[in-house]
Nucleic acid binder design. Structure first.
Length: 212
DNA sequence: CAAGAGATCATCT
DNA sequence: GATGATCTCTTGA
């Protein structure tokens, strides 16, 4: 008689081992933004698992960062940014699209990393349906696209990024510093001097970034 | 290919 | 009442 382990049980056990802990996010935001490159965003809804390699991020650091939502202080919306590292911050931009962030640093210091682009891996067919397109390079090559492909909405705002719905895995892939580019952030021209900060990071030569 | 406009609404003034 | 941490489509060279 043999012991049989169902494939999905194995998946759950392995994913728990690989899940990034809150301590990973409780570091300087720029470091987290860089080290998230090459990690895997995973979303589980029912039996469906969607995943993809993070290839582009942006850092938003504190109330002094004029591009950070918290630059206008503590409000009902920015409250999430003041929570502990590893909290999911999702908001609606331009009345239509969602943006996924992970809160960083110590509780009370409002900062986060925006997940700007992902290279789809698991559940690509579902992503195509969610996005209403079949073009692989157009599935998650932008923050709004990531959320649409993965079905991420404000309902996840405030959740833990090490929960049952959403988490980030280390699958052992290493991204060297030489393969990371730092450039100014997108869509924040209103942020004065901060608009010039090179706080957008992406993997050089990856074909799934938002390229702008 | 580049540039421009429209869609659409939660949030803050 | 104004404004976006965006995306898609249309227009025109």
């Amino acid at each position: 008689m043999r012991i049989r382990v169902d494939a999905w049980v194995r998946i759950i056990i392995m994913s728990r081992l690989k899940k990034l802990a809150p301590a990973f996010f409780q570091q300087p935001t720029l470091d987290v933004a860089r080290s998230l490159l090459g990690k895997y965003l995973v979303v589980k809804r029912g039996d469906v698992i969607l995943s993809g390699k993070i290839v582009e991020t942006e850092a938003y650091v504190g109330e002094d960062d004029l591009a950070c939502h918290a630059s206008k202080g503590r409000t009902p919306r920015t409250e999430t940014l003041y929570q502990k590292a590893g909290t999911v911050y999702v908001y609606l931009v331009y009345g239509m699209y969602h943006c996924l962030n992970i809160v960083t640093e110590k509780k009370g210091f409002p900062s986060a990393v925006l997940i700007r682009a992902v290279e789809p891996k698991d559940g690509i067919e579902r992503m195509k349906k969610n996005r209403k397109t079949a073009a692989p390079h157009n599935l998650a090559s932008g923050p709004g696209k990531v959320c649409e492909a993965f079905g991420i909405t404000r309902k996840m705002n405030g959740e833990s990024v090490r929960g049952v719905h959403i988490w980030i895995e280390d699958r052992g892939e290493i991204v060297h510093a030489n393969d990371i580019v730092a450039v100014p952030r997108i869509g924040i021209a209103y942020a004065g001097v901060c608009a010039r900060y090179p706080w957008r990071f992406y993997i050089t030569d990856n074909d799934f970034t938002s390229r702008k």
